[in-house]
């Protein structure tokens, strides 16, 4: 089932005079003519250099900023609260500086739900367990390290869409650079969790800077460069020497991952 269908999505820079936004002069666009779709249970990785418009695309999908074109999300509820039970978002940065305890932060993910205190607490414990941070449960959030904070925020976001029965429809997880502050072991662990959620039917859309991580765990990749969509499709068609060289302006060589046989990018 297609749960997200993006057609001709464009975003004009906010300060541009409005006289003729149809004439797509590239310098006035943040995003220009993006087309892609996402199925239930599918993992889409969004790759591209800094400033390509990856985070902006996520914001447009979540309805945080204005855009032209179409983002079809008919599968999701129109009611704000019900929608929050279906779509959870991990932001790139977290500004929380009040001295919440870790368990309280994860508990915030249960705000849209009315599943009762007992179930909420169980889910919080399970989410902490899943992200390997049960030992942080009673610590104060502002005292944690960057990577620990990121895992706490991930636990919060996962707790928001934890149970299928709460969602009453498809579930979508949007992650903006979820692995930036994580060490190698926890990056792998997080990708395992993402995979696990996708087998339960949760669709996942994530911005990743690590191409090898993205190509190993994604079903589909969307590559953005300078506000333009370079290519959107399966991993094999996106991770090519030509595409990677063009995207990141490097000399890339593609080899095969010894166990999963997915493409591995090596800069030469």
């Amino acid at each position: 089932m297609t749960i997200l269908d993006i057609r001709k999505l464009s975003i004009v820079k906010p300060d541009t005079p409005k006289r003729n936004s149809a004439s797509t002069n590239n310098t006035t666009m943040i995003l220009n003519n993006i087309n892609c779709s996402l199925e239930a249970g599918e993992i889409m990785g969004i790759i591209g250099p800094n400033g390509a418009g990856k985070s902006t695309l996520l914001k447009a999908i979540m309805g945080d900023i204005e855009y032209t074109g179409e983002v079809r999300t008919h599968a999701f509820s129109k009611d704000k609260l019900r929608r929050a039970r279906q779509i959870a978002v991990l932001p790139q940065f977290s500004l929380l500086n009040f001295s919440y305890r870790v368990s309280e932060v994860v508990q915030l993910g249960r705000i849209p739900h009315q599943s009762g205190k007992l179930i909420d607490e169980q889910i919080v414990d399970q989410a902490l367990e899943l992200l390997d941070i049960s030992f942080l449960k009673h610590r104060l959030y502002p005292q944690l390290s960057g990577g620990e904070k990121q895992r706490v925020q991930l636990a919060r976001v996962l707790a928001q869409i934890w149970r299928e029965e709460d969602a009453e429809g498809p579930r979508l997880l949007i992650l903006d650079e979820p692995t930036t502050a994580l060490d190698l072991g926890h990056q792998q662990e997080l990708m395992g969790i993402v995979k696990q959620f996708s087998t339960q039917g949760v669709a996942i859309m994530m911005v990743l800077h690590d191409i090898n991580l993205a190509s190993r765990y994604s079903d589909k990749l969307l590559a953005l460069l300078c506000s333009e969509q370079i290519v959107c499709g399966n991993v094999e068609s996106v991770v090519t020497e030509e595409n990677i060289s063009r995207l990141f302006n490097i000399k890339a060589k593609i080899i095969r991952h010894p166990s999963s046989n997915t493409p591995l990018v090596i800069s030469t």
Partner: peptide
């Protein structure tokens, strides 16, 4: 208010107007 401490867009994603 608890959700708003996370940030405004985060609160919006938690279903708050």
């Amino acid at each position: 208010l608890n959700a708003l401490l996370l940030g405004e867009s985060e609160a919006r994603h938690l279903g708050i107007d």
